[in-house]
Structures are given as structure tokens and as C-alpha cells.
């Protein structure tokens, strides 16, 4: 009976009420914490640091959503997921949103019944090779051994690419990025392929990053974004517009440094005012406080600040903005208007 009791007690702690079906927003508010699915460890995008705090580009989005909904960027439970577990975790309601460099594809959206709420990183699949190999194009990789993370879209793209170009390869399946790094560095594979951002992050962790090159071919489109369950449009809106708020904030020059001032003293730009809740009632429409966007931006800064802090050119990962620049700077980031 003692044992039954432990089980009961455990069940009591484990049974965190979380209706999977609808009203995720209410659940999050009631719970006082956002359950956010993240990667198990990819430097720059989502990894616990030496103090055990999660940080990274995707993690910052979780924090921004938590700040928008709950006013507290630390009210997040980070739930690490693997390629295999991420979709079940979301479908079963274990997590409220998934921010884990997940590619937006037709079948995931339609067949797996998820809703992608935007794109926070435009990526593409690339190849990294040791400079000493003298390879300059992915098409020269005939016969090469390729390290590839299982359970990702990159695995399918890789097969397609080599088949299309009528060249052969030997796949070496790895489960995590860390293992891919290990195999690649030990020379167990000639090239490592994953999203170009991931390659940059991986290369940054090497002892001599300059000894490795990322080949010019980008063989696929990998629009990465946060996703939520189908059928809860209110919650989908919250995540979508939090992301848009971060993007719009950069476009409008709202940063973590000036957001409080701008919210305290409304300026003459109506859209900024609507965004920051000093004009109109956008927050109320979503079921959030008026200062939701202020909190979201104050949490980690706008999109540009998040990018620079986690994966930008001044970090070890050193990614250029490229496609992820604002549309005004020739990139693809284009937030719909806050109106």
C-alpha cells in the first residue's frame, strides 16, 4: 500500500492539468508557466549553459511568448525534445509550443495537423568539409561518406540531392548534433550536412574553425519556425503575433533599451503606439494585457537583437543576416502590419 501511495503522490505532482484540445492560452495563464519544446542541445539555438539556464535563438522566442502572455520571461518550462519526440510532445499537449528549428513542410502542416505560426529563421541545407579535401562543390562529393542527423528533413533532401545529381554516397546516421560533430572530427565521414545555421554553429565549436569550409550549395529550403497544434487558433495567434512583434519592433527601431521609454511616452508613430499598446486595443483582442508586446520585446530585445546576441556575427557562430534581414535591407523578414 505504501507503494500505491507513492504512485498516487507522484501522480498528483505529475498530473499538471493541461487540456490538450483547446484554450491553451487559458491553460498557460492558469499554470503560470509556458511549456516550450526545445532542442536537446544546439549551441546558439537552444542549449543549457554552464549554469543550467537555457539560452539561444529559439529559446529567446519561448521567453518572448512567456513574457507576452505572463509578463515574465522566466516563466518557461523548457522541455527538451528529440527529432522523434517533438511532434508527439506537441500533439499530446505536453508542450504548448515547439520552438526547435523545425522545418515548415506541407505534410507536417497538413498531415501531422500542426500550425506553423511564422518563420523565425530562413535556412537551407548545406555541407561542411575539411578544407584539406579540396572540394569546392557539393557535386564533387561522389562516393563520399556523409554524416546526417536521423529523423530530419535534411535526411530526405540529402537522398534527393544525390539521386538527382546521379552520384553516390554512404550515409552515417547520427542522433544528435554532438555526435555528428564527433564523427566528422574523427574523420568517420567526409562531410557533415545539416541546416547551414547548424553547420556554422558546429564549426564554431571546432578547435580550428578555419580548417573547415561550408560548401556554396544550399540544397534545400528550410524555413524554420515555431509551431502549435491545429485547432487552437487563439493560441496560434498569440505565438504568431509575438514573433511578428519582434520582427516589427526591429523594423520600427524599438529595442529592449528604448521600449520602456517609448511605451511610457507615446510618440507620434501610430503603428508603434498600437504595437506597444499605448493606442488601440490589440492586446485585448488577443486576450492579453495591453503591454504584451512591450514585455515580449523587453525580454530579449527585438528580432535583430536576439539574432545578434545568439547567432550573429559577433558570436562564435557568426551567422550573417542574409535572408533573415528585414525586407527593407533585402531580406525576407516582413511582418504584417499591426493594425
Amino acid at each position: 500500500m505504501t507503494y500505491k501511495l507513492i504512485l498516487g503522490a507522484l501522480a498528483a505532482t505529475g498530473l499538471t492539468a493541461g487540456a490538450a484540445a483547446a484554450a491553451t492560452l487559458d491553460d498557460v495563464k492558469e499554470r503560470g508557466a509556458l511549456n516550450c519544446g526545445v532542442v536537446t542541445g544546439l549551441v546558439g539555438f537552444g542549449a543549457p549553459n554552464a549554469n543550467g539556464e537555457w539560452e539561444g535563438f529559439d529559446v529567446a522566442l519561448c521567453r518572448a511568448v512567456a513574457a507576452a502572455v505572463l509578463g515574465d520571461p522566466t516563466a518557461v518550462e523548457f522541455i527538451p525534445t528529440t527529432g522523434k519526440t517533438r511532434f508527439t510532445a506537441l500533439a499530446s499537449g505536453e508542450i504548448d509550443m515547439l520552438a526547435r528549428n523545425t522545418t515548415w513542410t506541407f505534410s507536417r502542416d497538413v498531415d501531422l495537423k500542426f500550425e506553423f505560426t511564422g518563420i523565425n529563421y530562413y535556412d537551407g541545407q548545406g555541407f561542411m568539409v575539411p578544407k584539406s579535401l579540396g572540394v569546392t562543390s557539393a557535386k564533387d562529393l561522389d562516393g563520399a561518406t556523409v554524416c546526417i542527423q536521423t529523423g530530419t528533413t535534411t535526411e530526405l533532401n540529402l537522398a534527393d540531392f544525390f539521386r538527382k545529381n546521379n552520384i553516390s554516397y554512404e550515409p552515417v546516421a547520427v542522433e544528435t548534433n554532438a555526435e555528428g560533430q564527433q564523427q566528422y572530427q574523427a574523420g568517420a565521414c567526409d562531410t557533415y550536412t545539416t541546416d547551414a545555421s547548424g553547420l556554422a554553429a558546429t564549426r564554431a565549436a571546432f578547435e580550428n574553425p578555419a580548417d573547415h569550409v561550408i560548401l556554396p550549395e544550399i540544397i534545400s529550403k528550410e524555413p524554420l519556425g515555431p509551431l502549435v497544434r491545429h485547432g487552437d487558433n487563439e493560441w496560434g495567434d498569440v505565438v504568431r503575433w509575438t514573433l511578428n512583434a519582434l520582427i516589427a519592433a526591429e523594423e520600427m527601431g524599438v529595442t529592449s533599451a528604448n521600449v520602456q521609454d517609448m511605451a511610457a511616452a507615446p510618440g507620434d508613430s501610430p503603428e508603434i503606439n498600437r504595437l506597444l499598446g499605448t493606442e488601440g486595443n490589440l492586446g485585448e483582442m488577443m486576450g492579453l494585457e495591453a503591454d504584451w508586446a512591450v514585455n515580449a520585446i523587453a525580454a530579449n530585445g527585438n528580432y535583430g537583437e536576439i539574432f545578434e546576441k545568439n547567432i550573429g556575427e559577433n558570436t562564435p557562430i557568426g551567422l550573417a543576416r542574409g535572408l533573415n534581414a528585414q525586407w527593407t535591407n533585402g531580406g525576407l523578414l516582413y511582418s504584417p502590419p499591426f493594425r
Partner: peptide, 9 residues
């Protein structure tokens, strides 16, 4: 396998 081997350090 996760956080420690994945860390840059």
C-alpha cells in the same frame, strides 16, 4: 551526450 558534449567548451 546532450548538454555537456554539445557545449562549445
Amino acid at each position: 551526450r546532450g548538454p555537456i558534449l554539445a557545449s562549445t567548451d
